[in-house]
């Protein structure tokens, strides 16, 4: 049933995101061409438009994410969603997977757009050289940790959103619903930041005795910036992985026990 849920989830949300991404890629091609024209006015105009489209891209993405959770689960459409012969877990997981895929699809499209701009304006040999230099500068390990941490952070963000929506609907907050939603969302994000910065968790082998300010780490132990980077991301990953099941089960519990559809 998860496959069928995913199918309909994508069917319901792909269109706007696909169209905006196509617009962005086409616009990137246009910007790439205008860059060769050397006209300052056209260049500024096309770059501004490109910037606006990138913002629009992510606004539409966020709007779609909120819509996919809120509309299908907490409005009258929830009557159909929750009477389907599927578990609440399948419903939540399908929404998480679909939104993560659409998010990464958008990120890839943005990257592809910039690649087009580079490819049109720089000859192939130079382009290869640039990428080789970038690969030499980049250290794979922290990048990998960063990428993994980012994927989990995205799941965490989606779960904070789900929890905020579930709480609002279970709490029967009728007035200033949007404001209350923002307050819950940013409140939980703030709690996460406090907790992860106050109680720093380090990888095995790296010792840390003092305080909660990460700068002390370098001062007292002579660790490099790269080490701190790894440690910070490890810490973030640790807390993210701890918050994800917590928020998942809280949201699930709210839906099970307190859901009252409009």
């Amino acid at each position: 049933m998860l496959g069928k849920l995913l199918k309909h989830e994508f069917k319901n949300s792909y269109f706007e995101i696909l169209i905006t991404n196509i617009v962005f890629v086409v616009l990137s091609l246009f910007v790439a061409v205008t860059l060769t024209s050397r006209s300052a006015v056209i260049l500024i105009l096309s770059l501004t438009t490109l910037f606006i489209v990138i913002i629009a891209l992510f606004v539409i993405l966020i709007y779609n994410i909120i819509k996919s959770f809120n509309k299908k689960m907490f409005t009258s459409e929830g009557y159909l969603t929750f009477t389907l012969p599927v578990s609440v877990d399948s419903l939540i997981i399908s929404k998480l997977i679909c939104n993560i895929v659409l998010y990464f699809f958008t990120v890839l499209c943005v990257a592809f757009g910039f690649f087009i701009i580079l490819a049109v304006n720089i000859d192939f040999d130079n382009l290869v050289k640039i990428f080789k230099e970038i690969l030499q500068i980049i250290n794979i390990l922290p990048l990998l940790i960063r990428a993994i941490a980012f994927a989990f952070q995205l799941i965490l963000t989606l779960l904070i959103l789900l929890f905020a929506l579930a709480l609002l609907n279970a709490g029967k907050i009728r007035r200033h619903k949007m404001l209350a939603g923002f307050a819950v969302f940013f409140g939980i994000a703030l709690i996460f930041n406090w907790v992860s910065n106050l109680f720093v968790v380090l990888p095995y082998g790296l010792h840390y005795f003092d305080g909660f300010n990460i700068v002390h780490f370098e001062d007292y132990h002579g660790l490099s910036g790269l080490d701190i980077y790894i440690v910070l991301n490890f810490n973030n990953l640790f807390w993210t992985l701890l918050f994800i099941p917590g928020l998942y089960f809280l949201s699930r519990n709210l839906i099970y026990k307190h859901l009252e559809l409009e």
């Binding site: 069928k4 199918k7 309909h8 009258s76 459409e77 929830g78």
Partner: peptide
């Protein structure tokens, strides 16, 4: 699986056509 429920409100997506609704019900 065996209950067919009609609530007292609109529960189909505003963006759907009847064909979309049929495809949805057929799948589930």
């Amino acid at each position: 699986r065996i209950i067919s429920y009609l609530p007292d409100c609109n529960y189909l997506s505003e963006q759907w056509t009847a064909l979309d609704a049929i495809a949805f019900f057929r799948d589930f």
